[in-house]
Amino acid sequence: MAETEQTEKIKNPVQSAERIFSVMETLAQTGPVGLVELSGMLGLHKSTVHRLLLSLTCMGYVQQDEETSKYMLTFKLVELSEKILAKVDILTVVHPYITRLANDCNETVHFVQRRGTEVFYLDKVAPLKPQESAIRMASQVGLARPLYCSGVGKSILAEMSEEEVRYIWDHSEIEKKTEHTIVTLDELLKELQIVKEKGYALDNEENELGVRCIAVCVPDHRGRPMNAFSISAPVGRMTDERINELAVQILRTKEEIQLRLGQA
């Protein structure tokens, strides 16, 4: 008998936790629902479900509609997830993925974050076995570049509304950095439409002669287009055919990062 009681003491807390989370997960899927219906969905007695709902209500995770008597989740879970995601160090999460990407494609990979009308280079990963090249890229961690004339910048802009893009354009110092730099808003808007269709952006020597980049945007935990990463290489290695190959790799890496961040 003593052994049975001890076993119950061990099992009950786990069972209660499982049931509480089952209630919450079910409410998340169904929306407002009545006690009887919820009991049927969970396969639990009405009194058991009622007790669980009372507990969740006391803790602020569930509320009952006064008119319909139906139960629903509050936004407390959302608040918790916001706090958790806000603590996520994006660089710690992303670095292993872009390191692998750099070594897989044998090219340099950059990670940036938007700040106002510019992007700041937060991480730069060179492959373990870099290819020989006469080009030495001017990029470095801490460097700032305008959004409008970089692959990473255009990948971020493509996730914004046209109104936001116009605002950023109007508040940027437009400069023809190379003969390939986009210097009109109409041309930029056309380019961003192509980015939306393909899922990635290109920098065709627009910021630095001799260097071509392919880039993708990674939204932050609130879905805002704040981060991006790119593969950069000398134009001699970045043919259109190579770009198509790298597009598969960079889009796959983006998907993996988003899964890791819970964005899928």
Rank of each mutant, 00 (worst) to 15 (best):
F111N: 02
Q64L: 01
S16T: 09
C213A: 10
T26M: 08
L192W: 02
E8C: 09
I214W: 01
E107Q: 12
Q113T: 01
S69H: 07
T239E: 07
A86W: 10
A233P: 02
L128K: 06
A158Y: 02
D220R: 04
P219H: 03
K177L: 05
V218C: 09
I98D: 03
V195F: 03
R224L: 10
G116S: 05
I231S: 03
V141D: 14
Y167Q: 11
Y121N: 09
L147W: 00
L157P: 08
V36L: 15
G151L: 05
S47N: 13
D203S: 03
V235Y: 10
E197K: 06
L35T: 06
T92G: 09
I174E: 07
G153C: 12
R114N: 06
E82D: 12
P13T: 03
M137A: 01
L73F: 05
A134W: 15
L147R: 06
N227S: 09
V14H: 12
T117H: 05
V36M: 11
Y200D: 02
L42F: 09
I84H: 11
K254W: 00
C149R: 01
R260V: 02
L44P: 01
Q63R: 01
E25W: 04
E255A: 06
V218N: 02
P130M: 08
V36N: 08
M238Y: 15
K254C: 02
T99I: 13
I135E: 02
Y200K: 05
H180F: 08
G223K: 10
R260P: 14
T92R: 04
V78K: 10
G236V: 02
Y97F: 06
E191Y: 07
S150E: 08
E132Q: 13
E208L: 05
E118I: 05
V23C: 05
L259N: 08
I20V: 10
Q193R: 03
V49W: 03
L27I: 00
